[in-house]
Amino acid sequence: MSRRWTLGRGRRLSLARHSPLRMADPRVKLAIGLCVSLAVMLPVERLIAFMVIFLIFLCWARLLDAIVGQIWRLKWVIVVLFLVDWWAVGLDLAITVTLRLVLLAGALTLFFATTTSAELRMALEWLRIPYRYTFSLSLALQSVGMLDDEWRAIKEAQRSRGAWSSPSGWRRTMGQMRNLVALTVPTVVMTARRAWSVTEAAYARGFNSPNRRSYHQLNMHRLDWFLLAGTVVIGMLLLLWR
């Protein structure tokens, strides 16, 4: 039995449910992401032209807000990189590198804001990547959203037992080192423990069975074919445009 693929929300990044790309086939979205990533090789004026096309596409996909939000989170990395490139080489390179970084961040957000970890797993399985690796990757992506909560909880827990300090002066560095240990050890332990618990739970439900059969099937629909054709055309143009 095949049916349209629908999934619940993941915790790592809120899904853009309103986007028409949300229901697109994950393989097509992988192709779009690959095409956008290829565009970073273009020289600056063509890169700008491509970015205009990408921007129009994002407006259609109703993903502009999500992508601007993600890029805003990277603002300091982008600013520092821009200034270092400008100082070390020149303005042209600084602009090119910045645009490439923005484009790559956009491509990644486009994919992960519209695709769940399970859909990614199915797309990778279609690419003949073994199930044990695709399953591990999807679990890892699901866990990303929990890390932030975990760090905050550990910091609070250590503070409440007096194992966290905010020293000043020459003691500052030593204090920060101790804080780092108090934060890192529980983080590593909890991450390892969670990974082990999930592994145990998965094996207890027959994870390593050689008989596994996938319930869901990926199906291409009209929108998917249209998007794929557009991606192929733009990809070809990018390759031929010299």
Binding site: G8, A202, R212, R213
Partner: peptide, 25 residues
């Protein structure tokens, strides 16, 4: 919490059934 391994409730149930090699029906 530690034994939840799928992104949705129905996927959580389907996971173990797929591993049994059952038909989709």
């Amino acid at each position: 919490t530690a034994q939840m391994l799928a992104p949705s409730v129905e996927e959580e149930i389907i996971f173990g059934l797929e591993n049994q090699g059952l038909s989709s029906a």
